[in-house]
């Protein structure tokens, strides 16, 4: 029988298959949607140094720090950008949540990759919450979260406490919208880490100021039913 070269179902150089050419999606500018897909390798653009993101070392920026002022300006612009497109506090917090979500997805994979050979996935609720409170928090803000509690009356709710969220340092919310907490951005990051590890949850940020910490924020984490059922099964399996 003649040997045929294996035809891989993988199609090189095809444009992003999630987008159909010719039908403008809500996120692509019209010009891209109407361009015909490139068909030859000559149309793929490389940087002149022939380096792509695959050549960058993932551990190179492990200890890099970002200036607080740079982040504050960028974050302020993100909030203003979101504010123009929404009407209401809930929508604004949702927009910030979405902005943080994609960061959380990437952070989860990156941090687990950086742990190297001893990396372990989290399978229990307490494990993943500790991962967020310690590893993720330390990576983002150079300090662990200030507290992790479980709600007394509801067993699907957990609370992550931050005395002074770094993202809120320079922000003063006007009295008219005092219910807004811009740490909804961090809540989005936390929600993505939980969703990615298969602990679907809704995470919201609430301001709970005290005299000592006027900016104290509590992230309320509400897990879905399926998570509690699985947790109960796993706990029952190994007493």
């Amino acid at each position: 029988m003649s040997l045929q070269p294996p035809t891989s179902p993988f199609v090189p150089f095809s444009p992003n298959p999630a987008l159909q050419p010719g039908t403008p999606s809500s996120t692509t500018p019209l010009s891209i949607a109407q361009k015909p897909p490139p068909v030859s390798s000559a149309s793929l653009r490389y940087a002149s140094t022939r380096r792509s993101i695959y050549d960058r070392n993932l551990n190179r920026t492990q200890r890099a720090e970002l200036s607080k002022a740079s982040f504050a300006f960028l974050f302020g612009e993100m909030i203003q950008y979101a504010q123009k497109r929404v009407s209401g506090i809930q929508d604004l917090e949702k927009k910030l949540n979405i902005q943080g979500y994609s960061i959380g997805q990437r952070l989860l994979e990156l941090l687990l990759f950086r742990e190297g050979r001893s990396a372990k996935r989290e399978t229990r609720i307490l494990g993943i919450l500790q991962f967020i409170a310690q590893t993720v928090y330390r990576h983002l803000f150079n300090k662990p979260a200030d507290g992790l509690e479980r709600s007394h009356d509801k067993d699907d709710e957990y609370m992550l406490i931050d005395h002074e969220p770094v993202v809120n340092t320079y922000i003063s919310v006007p009295k008219e919208i005092s219910l807004l907490n811009c740490a909804a951005f961090v809540a989005g990051i936390i929600e993505a880490v939980l969703d990615g590890s298969l602990f679907p949850a809704r995470v919201t940020a609430h301001s709970t100021p005290t005299d000592q910490y006027p900016g104290r924020t509590v992230y309320l984490i509400k897990f879905e039913e399926s998570v509690l059922e699985r947790e109960a099964m796993l706990a029952g399996g190994k007493p």
Binding site: F10, V11, P12, F13, S14, P15, N16, P17, A18, S41, L44, S52, I53, Y54, R56, L58, S102, Q105, R106, E109, L110, F113, R117, G196
Partner: peptide, 28 residues
């Protein structure tokens, strides 16, 4: 492990979202 490294690098692309097909030549 090598594929994992390449996958994480793919994820770092801001235009690549989770669950999208990987079409990069370099990844291949």
């Amino acid at each position: 492990t090598e594929v994992h490294e390449a996958y994480v690098k793919t994820l770092m692309n801001p235009f690549y979202e989770v669950d999208m097909r990987i079409v990069s030549v370099v990844f291949d």
